[in-house]
């Protein structure tokens, strides 16, 4: 066991997999050399595994996306880092048309076992190009898994599972959690399944579903509400696509009161889809309208610190929304 941050857990997971399988390579802007990425996730990997397995790319995200596909086709397990989730957009054609369709259009003869890593999320005064949640842009593309860990334990287990998966996996990392979250993480070689949501707290009064920073807000809010006599079931979505319908619907059924929290804009988010699934599957167990708590429908994210705070779903907003639903 070792106390490690979310960032260190991701690095540890990559490091273990690179040691385990020499076909694992990692690349991206500033990823190689001594720098090891703008946030330092890959720090030390070039030194340990050499510049051939951990290297820099030009500032062309389309190429990062395409290179990963090509490497996958010839037997490598490629990890492509997009410096910020916002920068994925130039590579969308590679991700959707090539990577996520490869197995289908070759009847399974060819695979693209890729991990695309991307730091997402706001609250770091990053302004428009460094704060967005882009998961909904790539959500709902059969063949492309989307996962995101919300704890150091999951971060290590999920990145390892993603690297071992034969499917292309879009791996979102909440950049604000990088050094904020610490957890005792086992040194054991474990993986966290890519397609399972996780009930991280049990309760009977309300069900809160979220991922990333807001999930951690929800966990703290749940402690506050516990003192007020309400127990919240908190579910980490983890697998954004495909969604773990079974776990999500079961948790919704358990309390009949569902709050869906996301840092993304309210409309058209992953939560909108989860809401639809619960409405379809659990109508006769619902005891209140399904509620969504999210950012406003305006571009994310303002640079002004006051406006950024206004935009962000914070612990207070989550607490209030949870309390309101509990009292309904």
């Amino acid at each position: 066991m070792a106390m490690m941050t979310y960032l260190e857990a991701i690095r540890k997971g990559i490091q273990e997999e690179m040691a385990r399988d020499e076909n694992v390579v990692i690349f991206g802007e500033d990823v190689g050399g001594v720098k090891g990425g703008v946030f330092g996730v890959t720090k030390g990997l070039a030194e340990e595994f050499g510049d051939d397995r951990c290297f820099n790319t030009p500032l062309t995200e389309g190429q990062i996306g395409g290179l990963a596909v090509g490497l996958g086709l010839v037997g490598f397990r490629a990890i492509g880092e997009f410096q910020f989730a916002d920068y994925i957009l130039p590579a969308v054609n590679q991700l959707i048309s090539e990577a996520s369709r490869m197995r289908y259009r070759t009847k399974g003869d060819w695979i693209a076992p890729i991990v695309y890593r991307a730091p997402y999320g706001g609250g770091v005064r990053g302004g428009l190009y460094h704060s967005q949640s882009t998961e909904k842009v790539l959500f709902g593309q059969p063949g492309l898994r989307i996962v995101t860990p919300s704890s150091p334990y999951d971060a290590k287990g999920l990145i390892k599972a993603a690297i071992r998966s034969d499917d292309p996996v879009l791996f979102y990392e909440h950049k604000r959690l990088y050094r904020l979250l610490k957890e005792d993480v086992t040194d054991e070689d474990y993986v966290v399944p890519l397609d399972k949501a996780n009930v991280v707290r049990e309760g009977e009064d309300i069900t809160v579903i979220g991922y990333g920073m807001v999930l951690n807000h929800a966990l703290k809010a749940a402690e506050t509400l516990s003192k007020e006599g309400y127990e919240a079931e908190v579910v980490d979505v983890r697998s954004l696509y495909p969604l773990d319908k079974e776990t999500l619907v079961k948790a919704a059924r358990k309390t009949g009161k569902v709050l869906l929290v996301t840092e993304d804009n309210l409309e058209g988010s992953i939560m909108s889809e989860i809401s639809a699934i619960i409405a379809e599957e659990a109508l006769f167990d619902l005891d209140a309208p399904i509620k969504r708590l999210a950012g406003p429908d305006s571009p994310s994210m303002p640079y002004s610190i006051a406006l950024e705070r206004e935009f962000l779903v914070d612990e207070e907003k989550v607490t209030n929304a949870m309390r309101e639903l509990a009292e309904f």
Binding site: L181, K182, E183, R201, K220
Partner: peptide, 12 residues
């Protein structure tokens, strides 16, 4: 800083 304890929370 936030301390997470994934397993025990799940059990808790």
């Amino acid at each position: 800083p936030m301390k997470r304890d994934t397993e025990s929370e799940a059990k808790g």
